[in-house]
């Protein structure tokens, strides 16, 4: 069992010693049940830190922002940033290290093992409670969550309200850490691609129908891109911000510019956008499920990335986010890579 006091103690220590400039963690929201990200700069604020099943966010995205902010500063504070990570988030750090986007000495990782459970899915919880408002969700010693509502406490089996990704998690243990809370517990997991295989087993036309229906909903808010720790390109191919339109830009010039993807949220354009995202995340996505969580239209985006994860595993025996020294999936090859599809 992870005790939040231990995390607070360590956070206080490293802040007091000036080892880190601030700590990214979770704190209680002022509105509702779910936690919110917290940036803790002074030892007094450490009391705000929490750890409970509502700590769903992948905070490594803030390391991307931190790097950008630091690049703009004249005299940047060179001390590392403390960050609270779960098993899945730690793999995101591994990928960022692997791509040399961040340096190991710039982060201080407070790893938390999810042990036998994980984090909850807010939508599942709302459904479960039938409109009642949960005030607190806690871990039980066993595989249950204890939910406190106005009516009192109730026990719910963890499997019923756990996030989808947690049900298919194969490494609930931080791969990288400077200090670890909780224990390494092996989870029983028969098939990490179970939910994906449900879609794969559909016929070709059914699959098309499914994805057309889903991606038609996309409003291209790019929330999935904004929340993704791997989507850190300075310029994304879907917005053409590098082509400034000035008073001198002629209509002809504008017409000749390459427009890979139109901005309009139509089927064809949405598909290109989501294809590009899936391919760019192939071998990099660590299945933190954030894209799916933030999607306002409830598109099951995780499956696209999961599919790429599965193919990487099956075709190339590649697992993302375990070894910072391995070359990335598409920048390496083996002689025995499959080529039965090539004429």
């Amino acid at each position: 069992m992870v005790k939040v006091e231990d995390i607070k103690k360590e956070a206080k220590r490293i802040l007091k010693e000036g080892k880190v400039k601030y700590i990214i963690g979770y704190k209680k929201s002022t509105n509702g049940l779910m936690s919110v990200p917290a940036f803790i700069e002074s030892p007094e604020d450490v009391e705000n830190l929490i750890w409970d099943p509502t700590c769903v966010y992948n905070l490594t995205r803030f390391l991307v922002d931190e790097k950008r902010r630091k690049a703009r500063e004249k005299n940047p504070d060179e001390r590392p940033v403390g960050i609270v990570v779960k098993g899945c988030d730690s793999r995101a750090i591994i990928v960022l290290l692997q791509e040399k986007f961040i340096n190991r000495e710039n982060i201080y990782v407070l790893g938390i093992s999810c042990e036998t459970t994980g984090v909850l899915d807010e939508k599942k919880l709302l459904k479960k409670l039938n409109g009642k408002k949960a005030e607190k969700v806690e871990y039980d010693e066993k595989d249950n969550f204890i939910i406190t509502t106005l009516d009192g406490k109730s026990k719910v089996p963890a499997d019923e309200i756990l996030a989808e990704r947690c049900l298919e998690c194969r490494a609930n243990f931080p791969v990288i850490n400077d200090i670890l809370f909780g224990e390494k517990v092996d989870r029983k997991l028969d098939n990490r691609f179970k939910s994906l295989e449900k879609i794969e087993s559909l016929s070709k036309e059914k699959r098309w129908g499914f994805w057309k229906e889903q991606l038609d909903k996309c409003i291209r808010c790019y929330a999935c891109r904004s929340v993704c720790p791997m989507c850190y390109c300075d310029e994304c191919v879907v917005d053409t911000i590098n082509f400034a339109v000035t008073a001198d830009t002629t209509a002809e010039e504008k017409a000749q510019r390459i427009k890979w993807v139109e901005k309009s949220p139509t089927t064809s354009e949405n598909f290109v956008y989501h294809f590009v995202r899936a391919i760019h995340l192939a071998g990099r996505c660590i299945d933190c499920g954030e894209c799916e969580r933030v999607c306002p239209m409830d598109i099951p985006l995780r499956f696209l990335n999961k599919k790429m994860e599965k193919e990487a595993k099956e075709l190339f025996d590649y697992d993302a986010g375990f070894d910072p020294d391995q070359p990335s999936l598409v920048s390496c090859f083996k002689d025995e890579d499959p080529e039965d599809f090539i004429r």
């Binding site: 598909f271 192939a282 696209l304 193919e311």
Partner: peptide, 16 residues
């Protein structure tokens, strides 16, 4: 070869 294999799988997955 690697990249195209992934693209091919993705296109098949969405039903092309």
């Amino acid at each position: 070869r690697r990249r195209i294999a992934l693209v091919k799988k993705l296109l098949e997955f969405i039903g092309l």
